[in-house]
């Protein structure tokens, strides 16, 4: 079967992303990939895709898609009002949609990025260095190396197979933090913490920093109490990981995100732990970020939170039982029905 979805409105910015591109990091090609890897991974998991399949990242809602060919979809991420044929539906669940169905995302109540996954193998996307992620600057990946536009049609080939209908992860701190206007993210100091004064580092951990509208997929520009350098804010260029917190000469932090450049010459006071990057990716302009200092020996425990979060759906007993059949929500004449599809043996 061919699932086909036409982009009626891409909203502010929609692009194809996956888990990111590592093959060009040593050659100046940005990592790219989903900003909120947790929501992205869940969306693929819920529709039954393999980890790392492409998905659509949608910024700040206002998205509309028209189904041209039967598809199984799921939307995760920001707390956004989602409608199928004008009927309000839940996020983090899968839906079997038919030709003519309309998917709509309205404004985001909390969080800012949604992920739309479609079951199957995507067609006609550009793959570069083992990744489908869109990098607009280098004009690579995704759909012709650009963001999605009205009229684009995305095609995914699939066949009916067992899928999980939903994941039960709503007690995770990720959801609590998304709804909260003050977000605590954990930070490991370094690699250039010695470039800052004691007062500078104290200010960094004491004050909250407000996210400004100058933020994008490259970096989150924050403003708050100035972080003072001892001498120069510059150093000989080194590599920049996802979540590195650069402090340029004005003393205001920039958290480097998916589309960051690979190398740079600003001092970095610390790095946000991978487990908390999805929370950062869902921060809206005007919200506050508080940096919480952690020690190196806590890192393993923090990583295991992330492992637990992602493994939960696989380990849950009731979920594995469904694996012999598939459950979907379908909408007919504005009413929702739970549909159970069981696999039958060959006759």
């Amino acid at each position: 079967m061919l699932a086909r979805i036409e982009i009626v409105s891409p909203g502010l910015l929609s692009s194809i992303q996956d888990r990111g591109r590592y093959g060009g990091l040593d050659y100046g090609v940005s990592e790219s990939g989903a900003m909120d890897i947790f929501a992205y991974d869940c969306a693929n998991e819920i529709v039954g895709n393999q980890k790392g399949a492409p998905a659509i990242e949608i910024l700040n809602g206002s998205f509309k898609g028209l189904v041209l060919g039967k598809a199984i979809i799921c939307v995760t991420g920001a707390l956004t009002e989602m409608k199928i044929n004008s009927v309000k539906v839940r996020l983090w669940e899968n839906y079997l949609l038919n030709k003519g169905d309309v998917i709509e995302l309205e404004s985001c109540e909390a969080g800012i990025r949604n992920y739309l996954a479609v079951q199957g193998d995507w067609y006609g996307l550009d793959k570069f260095l083992d990744s489908y992620s869109t990098d607009v600057k280098a004009k690579i990946g995704g759909l012709a190396g650009r963001n999605l536009m009205r009229g684009d049609v995305l095609t995914v080939e699939w066949e009916l197979k067992a899928v999980k209908r939903k994941l039960a992860t709503f007690d995770d701190p990720y959801f609590r933090q998304m709804k909260c206007g003050i977000k605590d993210v954990r930070v490991l100091l370094g690699p250039q913490e010695e470039a800052f004064t004691f007062e500078g580092i104290t200010a960094f951990f004491k004050g909250g920093y407000e996210m400004t509208t100058m933020s994008n997929r490259m970096g989150l520009r924050l403003k708050g109490q100035m972080i003072e350098h001892i001498e120069s804010p510059d150093l000989l260029s080194d590599s920049i990981p996802f979540g590195a917190i650069q402090i340029p000469g004005d003393g205001q932090p920039i958290v480097m995100m998916a589309d960051r450049q690979t190398t740079g010459g600003y001092t970095k006071i610390g790095t946000v732990v991978s487990t908390d990057l999805p929370v950062l990716a869902q921060t809206r302009p005007g919200e506050l970020i508080r940096f919480v200092k952690i020690e190196l020996d806590e890192l393993k425990k923090i990583d295991s939170e992330r492992a637990g979060r992602m493994n939960m759906p696989i380990q849950k007993k009731e979920e594995t039982e469904i694996l012999s059949s598939s459950q979907f929500t379908v909408i007919v004449n504005n009413r929702q029905y739970e549909l159970l599809v069981e696999e039958l043996g060959t006759v």
Partner: peptide
């Protein structure tokens, strides 16, 4: 990856 004076290893902590 490498720069003038650094080598960096990107790894998945899991």
């Amino acid at each position: 990856t490498s720069t003038y004076h650094t080598v960096s290893v990107y790894y998945d902590g899991l």
